[in-house]
Structure formats: structure tokens, C-alpha cells
Amino acid sequence: MSASLFHSFVFPGLLYVLLWTVGLYWFFRKFMAALHKRVGPSFNGKGGSYQTLFDLSKLLTKESITPDGVNPYLFSMMPLLAVIIAMLPSAFVPWMDGFVVVDSHYGLLALVVLIGIEPFLLFLTGFGSNNKYSFLGGIRILTQAISMETSFFLAALSPAVLFGSMNLTYIVEASSWMSFAVLLPGFALYFIALLGLLEQPPFNIPDAEQEIVYGFYTEYSGTNYFMLQLAMFAEFMAVFSGATTLFLGAYKGIFFDSYFFFFMKMLGIAVMMMTLRAATPRITLAQMLKFSWKYMVPLTLLNIAWVFLAKSLWFMGA
């Protein structure tokens, strides 16, 4: 009982996600500022480290405005649901050697499905906002989710094919430098699909502020907006930890195994994402669709074939 309370509220549950959100938010701001040749937050705390804490607590205490003519339940439930769904995948992730909350044979499936639901919740927030821009954003999310998730799922499947298991703990244990090399194309594809799934540049089409005024975010403010931001960062964590677990050997380190390596790997992916964000403009919806169906999906299928080939060549005996 106390163990499950600890899991759900401390690690890897609520507190952990909150800390991650505050920390990563601050890191993004500072890192982005450096790329922009700016200073970033600097007044509150050392290096502005309290800034995001203050910002988030400000959002929490601000009045949450529900616009006229929307379904208030749909409007306010969705952000909450989005946070919960985004936090669930961390229960299936082996954060440390021998530490996983739910050790399931279908861990990979759970991870992928829980990540895949998220865009539909965000679509519903846009749908429930009773705003043209939000609605357009919702439609864009749906379009993007359908096209990018296909390649995301297929890329995420490649470790399962290689190791013959969907158990995340087993995948991590079985991983090696050799399997890392074989899965490298899969990782690259996963990373690109991840950008599409998380609506990051160049695929930040659903919340394009210059085109459709932040899309589904438009009507949200105060606590609900905080929830959506929290959901976004929890989703970051889910997707990054998925990548780390599936392709990068999770907690496995150079001299010793520790959570430290897990965290650094996640941060590495975040840095890659941010750097791309600082140098790539947004593409259009039509270009994204073309890219996804013309290149990504065939490539991920080819990748599966490559993994089969590699498995029959080098991994059959083991």
C-alpha cells in the first residue's frame, strides 16, 4: 500500500513529473536563450532557477476562464485527463536496475498506446473550446497524429522484433553495443517521429502561433493551461524515456549502472530536440503529410526488415 502510494505520488509519479517539468522548463529556457544569444531567466534564484517554479505557481493560482458556450466539463476535464494519461507510461519504464512499477510482458505495448492516446485528448480540448482557431488546431493534431504515429509505432516495434519480447525490462537487459548499432536507424526514425508526435519544430503545425494562434491552447488560461503544460512535459518524459529504454539501454552506464545515465540520456534527446527547434522553421501540413506517408512510413517498414535480417544474421544463436 505504502509502496504504491510512493510510486504514484513520489517516484515515478506526481512529484517526479512536477520536478521534471520545472527543471526541464528552466533548462529549455536557459538552453534556448544561449542558442538565441540571450540571457534567459536570471533574476530569481541562481541562474533564474526559481523562475519556472514561480511561473507555474502563478498559473496555478490564476483565474481559469471558461469561455461562453463551451461544454465546461469537456473543457476542464480534458487537461486533467491529459496529465494523467501522460504520466501513466512512466509506470512501465525500468528507471533503475530492478526498479519498475508494473513489470508487464506487454510493457512496450502499454507505452506506445498510452503515448498514442494523448493527441486525441488534445484534439478534444480544441474541439471543446468553441473557437475557430482551436478547432483548426484540433483537426491539425488529428491529422498529424494519424500520420506520424504510424511511423512512431513501427519504429518503436523494432527492438521488440530484435529481442523477441515486449517486456521493457527484458529489452533493457538484453541490449548491448551490438544491438544499439543494429537499432540505430530505428532510433533515428523514432526521433523524427517523436518530433511529429510532440508537435516540435519542424512539425509544430497544430499549435502554430503565427498561423492559428496556438491552436488548441488558445482558450486556455490559469490552472487549465498549467495542466496542459504539465501534460506536455509529462509527455516529453514518456517519449524520451521510451526512446532511452528501447534504443539506448536505459540505466546502463559506462562503468556502473545508475539512474544518472538514464537521466543524462533523456537530457541528450531533449538537447537534440531543442537544437533542431532553434534552427528549423515550421513546414506546412501538406508537406508534413507528404513527408510522413511518402518517406517515414516506408522507411520504418524497411527498418523492420533490416532488423529481421540483422536478427537472423547475428542474434539467432544467442
Binding site: L35, H36, K37, R38, P201, N204, A208, E209, Q210, A278, A279, T280, P281, R282
Partner: peptide
Amino acid sequence: FFNNMGLHTLAMW
């Protein structure tokens, strides 16, 4: 020009 494509880096530079 770049801001309008969602990239603020050039404007900052």
C-alpha cells in the same frame, strides 16, 4: 520572415 515560420532564432540574433 523567419518568425512567421515559427523560428525566432534569427530575429534574436
